[in-house]
Amino acid sequence: MDKTRRYDRQLRLWKAHGQARLEAAHICLLNGTATGSETLKNLVLPGIGAFTIVDHRLVAETDTGCNFFVTKSDIGQPRGKAIVEHLKGLNEEVSGRWVNQNPETILDKDSSFSVSDYSLIIATQCSSEMLIRLAANCQEVGVPLVVCETAGFIGYLRIQIQEHTIIESYSGPNEDLRLDRPFPTLTEFVQKFDLNDPDSMAHGQIPYIVILLQYYQAWQRNNPEAPSMTLKEKKVIREAITRAMRHPDEENFEEAAKNVLWALNTTQIPPPVREILENPRCDQLTENSPDFWVLARAMRDFVQQEGDGMLPLSGHVSDMKTDTANFVAIQSL
């Protein structure tokens, strides 16, 4: 079974790395409830590595009325075992097993259950006393705990997790233009363009970044002492850009005018990022530190040394109105 074809629709969301992490996961469900089985279904289908169901009960008739993963012929059989079989049918790549144990006893002295065997634990229909002990255990070991219950039209979901670090985010990156502190190749690139180019086609292909930077540099020359642009000054520039449009269809000038307010901001490290860089976890690195903090520390070192107070450049540029050669050139600056 070709995995890239089967998983195509989800790979578009979390790509190969995300899928690899899913396939390395081992998830534990306490109690083979309908809610729990339904949750596992949504994890087995996309291909988690393995799952374990801890359940000591036998399938009763009431189970068949609400749980898709037990049938009438399973009645009297161990519930966990029945559910595992039906769930495994959803995806032959996934390993599933059943532990014949009362979930209430998993933390007892003689229990062989170990929270740290799992990447994540889902608890349903557990007593609050047990949950409190389990939560403490999960917290200590660093395993996320998901608690869920349902009753009629009402449902409850709670997640306990100490820290969740994300390195590869799949939401689009922000534009990081740094027009107020342009790097040398950008400055060089921008100088090649003439805002008064008589050739109307070339005029209409000037990337908006170039337009903005040229206006900004003109303002800098007239205001050498000013630390940053005021809102009023930005509006003045926006009007000037709009007036410079040679005809109403010049999209590149439209883009420039539209983006004046944020693109000409002072480049600085955003406060939430600064918080992360200044977090003591960056100093306390050990072999076991998550990659996230190692990277954060590396980033902090960069900012303090090569970066001259700035973060590394993401390099992402969104599409803009210009010709191919210019756009390719900008991307490679």
């Binding site: 109307s200 086609m201 005029h203 209409g204 269809d249």
Partner: peptide
């Protein structure tokens, strides 16, 4: 409008 003002820049 395309016939009254053909646009050579696009």
């Amino acid at each position: 409008f395309l016939f009254l003002a053909p646009n050579p820049d696009d």
